[in-house]
Amino acid sequence: MEQRPRSFYCLAAFFCLFLLFLYGPTLTIGILSFQGKGGGLTFPMRGVSLNWFRELFEQQAVGDIWGSFRRSLALGLMVMVSTVVVSVMAGLAFRKKFAGSTVLFYLAITSLVIPSILVSLGVGLIFNQLGLKVHWTSSGFGSQLTWTLPFGLLIIFAVFNRFDKSYEEAARDQGATSWQTIRHVILPIIAPSLIGVALFGFTLSYDEFARTLLTAGSYNTLPLEIFGMTTNVTTPVIYALGTLTTLFSLAIIGVFLLIVWIVGKRRSRVGSDAGKAV
């Protein structure tokens, strides 16, 4: 192996600093959430305790955190499933270049880049004028989809751009119907990427704030609850909550990565019939 150039070490150092920049603050509140009972929002630590985590579990201390957590979880799952299904279907449609596909594509891009507060405001106004009550399962759900679907779609595009069409042609040559081709050839091949879409769908929804703000109604999702806390909670209890929800996100990411890894393993073990010919 050739010698590393000097630029490598400079860039590697820069990269490490970047990681420190990304993770440092989060680690800091991780540490500070174990602040002692009399401690404040900054260092020094006045002892170490689980006091602030305990307060989180005492309902009356800090609003309806667990209710909002359950809602965010349910909403995240709803958004996740819809994102995977809708963006795969749309991805299949886009491969056929139907009339109007360009318009739909740019609409999806607009949905991604439009200031979130506009979606929030617009959906809120519509529900208001129709005399409907905004609720996280209806208006909140739809508003979040305008954020997660374009991401799902972009990932699916990237997947299909790299997709070897000869697999499909082989299936068709052997007499598979188009549904059979999708079900038994395309979906299994793109499965790992679908896990990625699902992960994006869930986490983007779980952390979504701006588009849910005016559309969640009287029952807050977790990010809205946390934001409410920032204005009136001045103790490390907010760090404790931040630490827990970040750990939860990390656990979810871990589970998804594990699934991808297992699928990949299985595939390399049973996916090939090389050497098994009679």
Partner: peptide, 14 residues
Amino acid sequence: LTSNIIRMISWIPF
């Protein structure tokens, strides 16, 4: 993939 609001809050002790 983690919460933007938490990431903002985490700058306070810094």
